[in-house]
Nucleic acid binder design. Structure first.
Length: 426
RNA sequence: GUGGGAGUAGCUCAACCGGCAGAGCACCGGACUGUGGCUCCGGAUGUUGCGGGUUCGAUUCCCGUCUCCCACCCCA
């Protein structure tokens, strides 16, 4: 048997109803904040990610699905192509390619699959889905303003609330401007040098390769050492510190709760200043439901104009896990099940079904070879509100037996009154 | 990529020390020829993930492999 390949999966009904609910809620929220949809290609030039996301990140160094496209001529070298592991780089590429800076502040969102070649586990797949948004534009468009950071975070809180997801925590940090990070990295290395030999081997490795990552060490014995390390907050220059304070002030003013976490580090190279993560308790080791931050230098890094931006990506797979709702109840149910009764009734039923469906009713259509018992059984199983019996008597009288499947009550309804009697809330 | 656990009917899971592969739910038919849900009766369902090995005999033991789950790494 041919099976879905490792780390990929089929989303089937009724579960897909949950996904639709999430997608539709997201679109509604984005609309309220005046975001517009962008769709970028699923694969891109490999260089976009190595330069944008960062050569040294795990994503680029070991998790990308990359292949060499065939060259035009036999002899010609092919281009390296990569399935997108995230979508921010693609959006910024499109921003540059289409001169979107001429539009001022761009507020863009996307919903779609991303690909990372990781070992699968719960809440982590090789093809996974992200709902994300980016606010990007020239500095004069206000793209750098702390008001934008706060707007994004408030949008996220609203979105999670509208989905009915409770128990989330917003972890907030500022990782400073490029210069701050360089200074901080330097200070961290100096602080780690004399003590790192006492640390867990894995943490030692981080101390050398990427000192910021030391804060992710979970080994209990190393915590006292980590506690003593300098904090990024002490290295923020005046504008950065002020920016961060203003973000917090707006959040307080709109009533979005947050927790400052100066150990929060984001994995992608392009982040600067505001960094955040929403976590959720019920997800096991993959507790980050979404993450994001500022990327003020990304556009320039990709050869574009100065275009500060802020964005986030939500792990939709994880969001659906955290969604404490049954797919069953989410599924929409037919308003009416039409039960054709006996030879020739399929064609009469088809006409009725067409008529009702054109009135925007949800109609399921049976089969004239079914016995009435089986039709009614099927109708209740589908959760239809009514069964409409279409037999010879009904056709002659042009009046149909309409059975309320919840109460069992059955009445004969003239053809002209059917829509009115079946329509919900009427 | 590393370490560990699991894989048996559509689903959830049994099967003692190696001895005829089972139950509940779901499904189908009937009791009831134009009336569902409740009840009763009957029915079908399997490459025991896959491949090899040991054995008279393997769901069971061994090896390999695939997939999922958990943890690590890292991230959404």
């Amino acid at each position: 048997m041919i099976k879905a390949v490792r780390g990929t999966r089929d989303l089937l009904p009724p579960d897909t109803a949950l996904w639709s609910f999430v997608d539709e809620t997201a679109r509604a929220v984005f609309r309220a904040y005046n975001f517009q949809e962008i769709r970028t290609p699923i694969f891109e030039d490999t260089q976009l990610f190595s330069r944008g996301v960062g050569e040294e990140t795990d994503i680029v160094s070991k998790e990308m699905f990359t292949w060499e496209d065939r060259g035009r001529a036999q002899s010609e070298k092919g281009q390296l192509i990569t399935l997108r592991p995230e979508n921010t780089a693609g959006v910024v590429r499109a921003y540059i390619e289409h001169n979107l800076q001429t539009r001022g502040l761009n507020k863009l969102y996307y919903i779609g699959p991303q690909f990372r070649r990781e070992r699968p586990q719960k809440g982590r797949y090789r093809q996974f889905y992200q709902i994300g948004a980016e606010m990007i534009g020239p500095p004069t468009s206000g793209s750098e303003s702390p008001a934008r950071d706060a707007e994004i975070l408030e949008l996220l809180a609203t979105f999670l609330d509208r989905l009915g997801i409770s128990g989330w925590t917003l972890q907030l940090n500022s990782i400073g401007c490029a210069q701050d990070r360089a200074n901080y990295n330097e200070a961290l290395r100096n602080a780690l040098d004399p003590v790192k030999s006492r640390m867990d081997p894995d943490c030692q490795r981080r101390a050398v390769t990427n000192p910021l990552r030391v804060f992710d060490c979970k080994v209990p014995e190393d915590q006292p050492i980590i506690e003593q390390l300098p904090r990024i907050s002490e290295f923020l220059d005046e504008p950065c510190r002020k920016h961060f304070e203003q973000v917090q002030e707006i959040l307080k003013s709109v009533g979005v709760p947050f927790t400052l976490n100066d150990r929060l580090v984001r994995g992608l190279d392009y982040y600067s200043r505001t960094a955040f993560e929403f976590t959720h308790g019920a997800l096991g080791a993959q507790n980050a439901i979404l993450g994001g931050g500022r990327y003020d230098g990304l556009s320039e890094q990709l050869g574009g104009p100065k275009a500060p931006g802020i964005g986030f990506a939500i792990g939709e797979d994880r969001l659906v896990l955290a969604l404490n709702r049954s797919a069953e109840e989410m599924q929409s149910k037919p308003d009416v099940y039409i039960a054709p009764l006996g030879a020739g009734m399929d064609r009469e039923s088809a006409r009725l079904a067409r008529e009702l469906r054109h009135q925007d009713l949800m109609v399921e259509l049976g089969d004239e070879t079914f016995r009435l018992k089986k039709s009614l059984e099927t109708a209740s199983k589908l959760g239809a509100r009514f069964a409409l019996i279409v037999g010879e008597n009904e056709i002659k009288a042009d009046s149909f037996a309409l059975k309320n499947l919840a109460t069992g009550e059955q009445v004969s309804v003239p053809h002209s009154e059917l829509v009115e009697r079946i329509r919900p809330n009427s």
